[in-house]
């Protein structure tokens, strides 16, 4: 008995020494997980050997006692001893846990991929809102540029010049050709408070004069025919504070309306970007567009 205990202690020490020799540097550095793992390894060594010693001792010295059952199989009998109480408690506990897990635990705590996604989005959105509550002009322009590069540049080009007329040149507001097209066909995509623009409000030389004036950036004396436009777009062409599209530059309202509703014009169709950019990002795109305006 004594010999066995001494042998066990020697084995524990040897194994611990070997473990420490091979992986002892886990205690250096400030990563406590490594140290914890090492401590776990040492605990496993001592518990395993102590338990093994206990049972070897039991096999050597214990004798079975109790009342024999009536049956025997080829001379091998069976005691009528009850199971150890610890086993019994664990067995009943398992059954209770099974009922809880089956009816409450699993159904109410099921992992949901979509739930995790919704949490991720909500957390991000609230963080975004907090962080960019009062963005400076520089922040908006930088944010607008990166948003533009991801969402807009595939059509409008990385320089925003519209890839040789394949899309709107966003460094300029509007060309003469586009003004003439819009006067001829009207515009009903943008959903402004002022409503749709009916086609053929001006014709012939009047339309030409308006187109030259608007495409030129509304500089100098307005032609008489512009009065028709001014009734909605305002005498300065700036859209009467967001009631109608601004003809002079891309302001926040215009960018927002185009992104929400999409557009169809002389160049082609722009799809709606509804729900793809949040309000701050829409503002940012507008800020970016006014920062790259060509003079």
């Amino acid at each position: 008995m004594k010999k066995m205990v001494i042998g066990g202690i020697i084995l524990i020490v040897v194994l611990m020494a070997a473990t420490f020799f091979m992986a002892g540097d886990a205690f250096q550095g400030d990563d406590y997980i490594n140290a914890l793992t090492m401590l776990g390894a040492l605990a496993i060594i001592s518990i395993t050997i102590a338990t093994a010693l206990k049972y070897v001792n039991q096999i050597k010295n214990d004798t079975a006692t109790g009342e024999l059952a009536d049956e025997n199989w080829d001379g091998i009998g069976e005691f009528k001893n009850p199971i150890p109480s610890g086993w019994g408690i664990i067995f009943i506990g398992t059954i209770i846990w099974m009922l809880w897990y089956f009816f409450i635990g699993y159904p109410t705590n099921q992992f949901s991929q979509i739930g995790q996604y919704n949490d991720e989005v909500n957390e991000y959105n609230s963080k975004f809102k907090d962080k960019w509550k009062n963005p400076s002009k520089e922040t908006l322009e930088a944010m607008g540029e990166s948003t533009f590069l991801v969402q807009c540049s595939p059509c409008h080009g990385v320089d925003a010049e519209g890839i040789d007329g394949k899309a709107q040149d966003l460094t300029h507001r509007i060309s003469k050709k586009q003004v003439l097209y819009t006067i001829k066909h009207g515009q009903h995509y943008l959903n402004y408070a002022m409503g749709a623009m009916p086609p053929l409000m001006a014709q012939g030389a009047d339309a030409e004069a308006i187109a030259t004036y608007v495409a030129g950036g509304l500089k100098g004396e307005a032609p008489a025919a512009f009065a028709t436009c001014a009734s909605c777009h305002g005498p300065d062409g700036k859209g009467m504070n967001g009631m109608a599209p601004n003809l002079k530059e891309y302001d926040e309202t215009l960018v927002k309306h185009v992104l929400e509703n999409g557009k169809k014009g002389s160049i082609g169709t722009m799809p709606s970007f509804k729900g793809r950019l949040n309000e701050t990002q829409q503002k940012a795109v507008a800020a970016f567009l006014s920062s790259i305006k060509a003079e």
């Binding site: 595939p154 059509c155 394949k166 082609g268 169709t269 799809p271 970007f273 793809r276």
Partner: peptide, 11 residues
């Protein structure tokens, strides 16, 4: 189909 158009695909 939500964010590209016929013209874009053509180009």
């Amino acid at each position: 189909g939500n964010y590209r158009t016929t013209e874009w695909h053509e180009n």
